[in-house]
């Protein structure tokens, strides 16, 4: 991120750094691990009262993780080429800033 003030209209997708992709990936990895534990690991049915808890939690996590990645795919976030640090001083409260105005949304 540089603070040089360019016109800044060019935009690119947040891609892998989109928080929805990161959430989705983490949940999906956990989903796979729990799914495998549910299929092949110790199911500890005495503790869970007879439910294969790892299996079910794994499936749900995979679905939720997938939905987050789908959401990020369908509605990508556009990042302006130039990101302001502390713009938004149009109301002039006397804070010294280096950014200037914010791009209109």
């Amino acid at each position: 991120m540089s603070s040089t003030n360019t016109t800044g209209t060019a935009k690119h997708k947040a891609g892998a750094f989109d928080i929805r992709n990161i959430i989705g990936l983490l949940l999906a990895i956990y989903g796979v691990i729990l799914l495998l534990m549910g299929l092949f690991g110790d199911q500890a049915r005495d503790r869970t009262g007879g439910v294969n808890a790892n299996l079910w939690a794994g499936i749900v996590l995979l679905v939720v993780g997938g939905l987050f990645m789908l959401w990020a795919r369908l509605k990508p976030i556009l990042v302006p080429e130039h990101v302001e640090h502390d713009g938004d001083d149009a109301d002039g409260h006397g804070h010294q800033t280096h950014g200037g105005g914010r791009p209109a949304h």
């Binding site: 956990y30 691990i33 729990l34 534990m37 549910g38 690991g41 110790d42 199911q43 500890a44 503790r47 869970t48 808890a53 790892n54 939690a57």
Partner: peptide
């Protein structure tokens, strides 16, 4: 300790 199987316990 009493309810979760290993795996969910780690989570």
């Amino acid at each position: 300790r009493d309810v979760l199987p290993n795996g969910l316990l780690g989570l």
